[in-house]
Amino acid sequence: STELQSTIGMQRLTNYACQPMDQDTFVRLVTAGQPAAPGYFSYDADLNRRNRDLYRTTEDAPALDPAEFTRLHTTGAVVLDARDQFEFAAGHLAGSVNVPLDGRFAEQAGSVLTPQDDILIIAPEGRAEETVTRLARIGFDHVHGYAADPQQLFHTHPDQIRQADRLTAQTLREQLTSPQPPLVLDVRNCGERDEGRSIEGALHIPLAELAKRLDEVPAEGPLVVHCAGGHRSSIAASLIRHHGRTDVYDLLGGYGAWETAA
């Protein structure tokens, strides 16, 4: 749920899992279509058994000027761009991984990055500390800082700015009937496909498993990534580009747009 608070009484009235039922029915209900657990879960289970120093957001992950940000990037730090997928698509640093902050940010970032990654942040305006804090809550403490002024950073390195390639559902339909159709990669969860609603011939790898299964994605030919609405596909496509693939597109509006255009 997107709600920040509720009551037990409200949940008993409205939550499908809180209705009267026997134990076997309950177990089947709440485990059906469960997504894969993000990779950081086992890491956090171990981390929670240890004594930890208090994390200091502004001191441990400071604002960085373009020169320092670039120095850290060139020495191997991963750029995590937390802007929404539309801003990211319009212009971003080459190799950046896009995980929009307005969503299941920590869970999704923890699915496509590892706790050992050195991370640099490009955050939505005024939300850098929030971005760093939400990563720290899942034990991702190797954040070296965030771009103090992303636009200044971009202007400093115009040769490193890229735009994300995106396709409409109609364009994808046309390309799938061409002599050399693209491969479609579906990053939705298994439960979202259980009713048989999928693009014919699509390779299915849930987003939470993609980082560990990248070798299953063919290395050649155009690739179109889709999810349900376009949020997760931007994450997945940026991750694949981060690992060196260039001919990668994501589907605007996701599977919802595909069905509407049918």
Rank of each mutant, 00 (worst) to 15 (best):
D102I: 03
D102F: 12
D102C: 03
D102M: 13
D102A: 15
G103T: 09
G103E: 02
R104M: 11
F105R: 05
F105C: 09
E107K: 12
E107N: 09
E107T: 15
Q108T: 14
A109E: 01
A109T: 08
A109K: 06
A109Y: 02
G110V: 04
G110R: 01
S111R: 00
V112E: 06
L113F: 02
L113Q: 00
L113C: 00
L113R: 05
Q116S: 07
I119V: 12
I119F: 04
I119H: 07
I119D: 07
L120M: 05
I121G: 03
I122F: 07
A123W: 14
A123T: 07
P124M: 07
E125K: 11
E125T: 10
G126V: 03
R127V: 03
A128M: 10
T131I: 04
T131L: 03
V132D: 07
V132L: 04
T133M: 13
T133E: 13
R134M: 14
R134I: 05
L135D: 11
A136H: 01
A136L: 00
R137G: 14
R137F: 11
R137V: 09
I138L: 10
I138S: 11
I138W: 12
G139V: 08
F140V: 00
D141L: 14
D141Y: 15
D141K: 10
H142C: 05
H142Y: 02
H144S: 12
H144D: 09
G145T: 03
G145P: 07
G145R: 08
G145C: 06
Y146I: 02
Y146F: 10
A147E: 09
A147M: 08
A148S: 10
D149C: 07
D149Q: 04
Q151F: 01
Q152I: 05
L153N: 12
L153Y: 11
F154L: 14
F154A: 12
F154G: 00
F154I: 15
F154R: 12
T156M: 03
T156K: 00
T156Y: 03
T156W: 08
T156E: 13
